[in-house]
Simulated scan of single mutants.
Amino acid sequence: MSNYLRKTSKNTKRTLQEMKDRGEKISMLTAYDYTMASIIDKAGIDVILVGDSASNVMAGNRTTLSITLDQMIYHAQSVVRAVKSAMVIVDMPFGACCGNPMKSLDAAVRVMQETGADAIKIEGGQEVSEDIKKILAAGIPVMSHLGLMPQSIHNYGNYAIRARNEKESEKLISDCLLVESLGVFGILLEKIPSHTATKISNMLKIPTIGIGAGSGVDGQVLVIQDVMGMNDEFSPKFLRRYADLHTVMSEATRHYIEDVKSVSFPNQSESY
């Protein structure tokens, strides 16, 4: 059995820091329900992110903006019940952390108290620095999310690569250094040039997790439905599918339909 599967204790922010310090890459996937979280936790994943991407892949919304704090708490509760080893990080949804530190703290406390998660993740840098400070002061671990920030999609106008020009790259680096100085335990970097992500990772003492940010970061995250090939309509350049569950499940469903209609299911051995 691989050493990566011999988990004897719960992963924490300290675990991730130790992994960065010794040069071991960090594996992260999203999960939004008990069954999926149980499977990937038992497989040895280091971190599970209860992402606001649940808005897209679980509820069918066009953006992440529609999901509420109550809905995020529901998904996180389901995941935490399943997890024995992985660190569980919960996204703060749109509007929960947006420049009102006391409101942000109240939302973060709810997440931690009602779900039993290990940490939260907040999109934004300097603009939400006071929110981050207030939450950290309450003893809640925070991961930052910079680069492409889906909650700001209406500002961007599209999901194009961020930090391609000098001004935006300088702002990204400045934000990374700022949130590190505030005390966040890690930064998720989404859809930025790989050379910029590598530069940032080498500058920072805290771990960086990438999605569409190349291999020079300290770890990788993907959405579980994308990794497992459940969504055959989403094919960004950074995605690698490790299974084709869309085909498997479609064929299984058709087979089930045929068996029901031909009365071959249930057979005698499947009946009481």
Rank of each mutant, 00 (worst) to 15 (best):
E130I: 00
D91T: 07
S262H: 01
G116D: 10
V109H: 06
G216P: 07
Q225G: 07
A117M: 10
Y242L: 13
A37P: 08
F185G: 03
G124Y: 02
A37K: 04
I40K: 03
R22W: 00
R240P: 04
S201D: 11
V80E: 05
K20Y: 11
I211T: 05
L245S: 08
A86F: 10
S129M: 12
L172N: 11
E168I: 02
K191S: 11
F185S: 10
G116Q: 13
K191H: 11
Q77R: 15
Y256N: 04
L188G: 04
M203A: 01
G125D: 07
I161P: 05
G51M: 04
D259F: 01
H195A: 12
A197T: 03
E258A: 10
F265S: 07
A117S: 11
N231S: 01
A107I: 04
T247D: 13
S250W: 02
A43L: 10
Y159P: 02
E123F: 08
L177I: 05
E180W: 12
E24V: 11
I135N: 01
D232M: 15
A197M: 06
A137G: 02
K42E: 15
I206S: 07
A243K: 10
G147R: 04
L49P: 00
A76P: 10
A117K: 13
A213C: 06
S85V: 02
P236T: 07
I153F: 00
T35E: 06
G23W: 15
S85P: 00
P141G: 08
K25L: 13
I67E: 09
E170S: 14
K167P: 01
S27A: 10
Q220E: 14
V50T: 08
R164Q: 15
E123A: 08
E127P: 00
